[in-house]
Design a protein around this nucleic acid. Structure first.
Lengths: 233, 233
DNA sequence: CGGCATCCGGGAAGATACTG
DNA sequence: CAGTATCTTCCCGGATGCCG
């Protein structure tokens, strides 16, 4: 038996509100109906700095399996938080990009991160994606420590580059070329996090070749002091 | 067979970080490790206005089953977001109360709610708990519409009473007696939501006995206009 | 190789019944 | 009232394989 397989999955199947709904008018409950499944929010996190391909997402989310990633991308597309585009002819591949509404999930990542940073169980030495690190800068930035600072800090992590722009008490981050950076950090996200959040001296990290700093070294040192962690609960 | 049941659950069993961890230093990922399981955040939502008993939580979270509620309460206690207290002698019962750090989850509920309010799939006519309604007022309050307003709005929902205090462009809500309320809404949370978010006329709701308004009627009408919903995505 | 479907084992969620 | 025990269902995660 088991020869009949008419299991062509239809959009209707995927769209019907995931069968297991909270059935609750509360906005937070609806948000959980939309993106409360495992991995969903982390997929969005990885897309916060622009489109990525399927395999990029798999690489940046160690632990997610291909079928689960497929399901989450389908669901996020169905609810309108994500769009799937075909790349121009040469590349026969697809990219996934958040919609404008999808990008608005950023404050959720911010407040969740700030809350969890006070958890006694939080282990900041675990692995970290580049997107997570950049988001953590926007989240943990302390404007009062950056008074009068106007600087462009570059990051080279894997084959991606990011520019963090600190000016007027604000801290922006974008995935872009490093033109005009005053200083560049190169290395794994983990090593940079060790410097910024773990208090590891830059010199030590450079000595063990976990991190390279190119450019204004004093600025690099100052940068690492701009993101204080909150007190544990 | 199946006669041996030494399944005494130990604290160690419950504490070991739920086996299925994201293993990610990102704060948002850790938050999901802590409260990403189904129902966890909604349990916290129900406790935002003060302690409740087990059966109160069951009543206010239609759909949760007793064993899942037990598991979530244990987990929230283990991570330090919740404490379980025995009531004074006369009542032989327990209550569950958020810790100070647990109460800090409120902004998470706010940003999730604001984001989901823009979802085209959001259905504001579904049932709603009293706590959800009060939180929605704090979340959706538009200070610019309440210029110069200083008012105390009371709510009687089931056997609970809440006071919403609007003053100086801020909107607070608390579970407390209705002394000094300028106007009181009584009825199901759903009906009050229909007036505030669904644009249903108070008169119509009163006619069908879904809602009762006692006190300053003009203030009641004005109150319903202070919480505009965002544009759909 | 990228994207997706299928099959399977383990475990979490849901429903119900039961106990102190 | 406050949970516990048990059973079923469904989701998650891993492996494999198909197809462009």
């Amino acid at each position: 038996m088991k020869l009949v397989k008419l299991t062509k999955k239809t959009v209707a199947d995927r769209t019907r509100s995931s069968a297991r709904s909270y059935d609750d008018a509360c906005g937070a409950a609806h948000a959980l109906d939309l993106i409360g499944e495992r991995w969903a929010l982390l997929v969005m996190r990885e897309l916060m700095f622009g489109p990525k391909r399927f395999s990029d997402l798999r690489a940046d989310l160690p632990g997610i399996s291909a079928n689960v990633l497929t399901q989450r991308l389908e669901r996020l597309e169905d609810i309108g938080a994500l769009s799937r585009r075909k790349l121009p002819p040469p590349a026969a591949s697809h990219v996934y990009e958040l919609t404008p509404w999808g990008y608005e999930i950023e404050p959720v990542l911010g407040v969740l991160g700030r809350w969890a940073a006070r958890s006694p169980l939080h282990d900041p030495t675990l692995p970290l994606s580049a997107a997570s690190l950049m988001l953590s800068f926007k989240t943990m930035f302390d404007a009062s420590r950056a008074k009068g600072l106007n600087a462009r800090i570059g990051f080279r992590i894997g084959d991606e580059t990011f520019l963090v722009h600190i000016h007027g008490g604000a801290c922006d981050a974008a995935r872009q070329a490093l033109n005009g950076a005053d200083v560049v950090f190169a290395g794994q996200a983990r090593a940079i996090a060790a410097a910024v959040y773990g208090g590891a001296p830059l010199q030590a990290l450079e000595a063990e070749k976990a991190l390279w700093v190119e450019g204004d070294r004093a600025l690099a040192e100052r940068f690492t002091s701009l993101f204080p962690l909150p007190q544990k609960a």
